[in-house]
Amino acid sequence: MKNIQDIQILFIRNLKKTFKSPWWMIGLAQPILYLLLYMPLLKNIGGTAALSIAQIAQIFVPGMLVIMGISNLFAGFGFIPEIRTGYIARLLVSPVSRTAIMASLILNQLVSFGMQAIVLTFIAFILGLRVTFLGLALTFILILLIGASMSALSYVISIGTKNETGLATIVNTIYLPVMLLSGILLPISLAPDWLKKLAHINPFYYAVEATRSLFLGHYGDRVVLEGFAVMIVFIILFSWIAVRSLKNMTT
């Protein structure tokens, strides 16, 4: 009970902070740029027969949603200054549980991310994307799991490095290969064999494949199950590590 109330108090405070600064709007602009400036490039990818924008969207939007989920790795950039001002230490010395502190941070991150994802999907709809409600709902659950586990990981790295430069270096090192090897920008089926094999060790490959299947209405595909399984393992693992690192945090 105390935990839920604490999460609520901290969550509301985090939301206020997020929407007080104008930066969150720039976060919204990014997916729009991808849709408008990148998606048209894919038009002729299928060879002679040009794909319709609706067909492209069906392949591209799921990958885009996953990429945005992974971008939550940058969540720590808002968190490190809070360590530096002593704000986090103040919470840690109060009766608030470490779990509540971490949960309120992740939830806040999910609100910003969820809004971005909704805007992206909405614009894609206007451009001609068609997807079933169930497919979209399951996709959103999956990408929120990605967003939550990646922000948890980002907080772990932030607590470890305590400076933005260190966080940037580590996050970029993870981000680029993960993105290239997941078939987000283009389906991995276009890749040579060795690259396909390499992609299979990337956990996010399964998430991208799962969301694509969901968008096509193939709910029972094995990849859907694999995608969810990987992300459930991720969220349990990273949120556990995140709470632990708060417990052992030195200030």
């Binding site: 001002t85 230490a89 103040r90």
Partner: peptide
Amino acid sequence: YVSQAGGSDVSA
């Protein structure tokens, strides 16, 4: 506890 850094939330 008042840490060296202080601990106030500068966004509020």
